[in-house]
Design a protein around this nucleic acid. Structure first.
Lengths: 145, 145
DNA sequence: TTTATTTCGGACTAATTACTCTGAAATTTA
DNA sequence: TAAATTTCAGAGTAATTAGTCCGAAATAAA
């Protein structure tokens, strides 16, 4: 089940690295992140520009510049990043692609799919980048290879 | 959340139409299905060829030919159609795209995502085309517009 | 002030997915 | 047998997504 585009996947991995291995109250360069995760530097740059435009990251140019979280990691939820990269309507899609699928005129799998989306959305809304970064730092969870 | 490709979406809608409005123990033409659902005839034809090759449909050429289910509708599960059109590995994908994400080396969202996939897979495994076709015939659920 | 470093902006190319089209093969009907 | 109807096969085209690249702008350090 391909739930995220490449932009979403790379974006999540990259921002999680940024959160999990923060430079002491300063910016981290995109180059470092893309090198560590073996992702295309240019592609990550493009994705991060989007996250900066959406107010999730802040950036600074020049030597010792880079990117940083715009808010503390416990105040940025998974859902914020996903919606920023995949679109605000991410959880509003009908499984079989009907335009105005809803309670009034549902498709045959509407009810089940709606419940599924609600559960995922709840989890993403409750999960902060901070909680995920702890897992990564604990070495039990990984972001690449 | 775009869980299915266009092939998957159109394929499901088309086969559900076939099941919901069966011609009396005979074949239904792809033209009728694509016309009713306002889908591209050629595209549906291509998708149905795949379902025929996978043993989900049978087909017959010539006048009064068309397609039909290879088995009774209560013996074809949603998961059969989805896997035929989206790939057998449909439920084996890591959310953030890590190659060998599993219990041994999980990504930070592995556990939650695994549970989510299991629930969807269970539902798809339990849901037959027959049960969905009843819903459609009841007029409370739709396949187009 | 010059040079190096970094993000920004956007044009460009490559790959994949989505869809179209044409003709062949099978089959029925006239 | 001839004509009409239908799927089969696969090449071709269009649109979208993925990824690359280059130069400009900002900033820091030499």
């Amino acid at each position: 089940m391909k739930a995220l585009s490449q932009v979403g996947k790379y974006g999540l991995r990259a921002i999680l690295y940024l959160v999990a291995y923060p430079s002491e109250n300063s910016y981290m360069s995109i180059r470092q992140i893309s090198d560590e995760l073996n992702l295309s530097f240019h592609f990550v740059t493009k994705i991060f520009r989007e996250l900066t435009a959406k107010g999730i990251l802040i950036s600074y140019r020049g030597p010792s510049g880079g990117v940083a979280l715009a808010r503390p990691a416990d105040q940025i939820m998974l859902i914020d990043v996903v919606k920023a990269l995949e679109g605000e309507d991410y959880f509003d899609k009908c499984l079989i692609g009907l335009p105005h699928c809803g309670t009034a005129k549902p498709c045959p799998v509407h009810e089940f799919w709606k419940e599924t989306k609600v559960k995922i959305q709840q989890n993403f809304t409750e999960t902060s980048l901070a909680s995920l970064s702890e897992k990564i730092r604990s070495q039990e969870f990984r972001l690449d290879e």
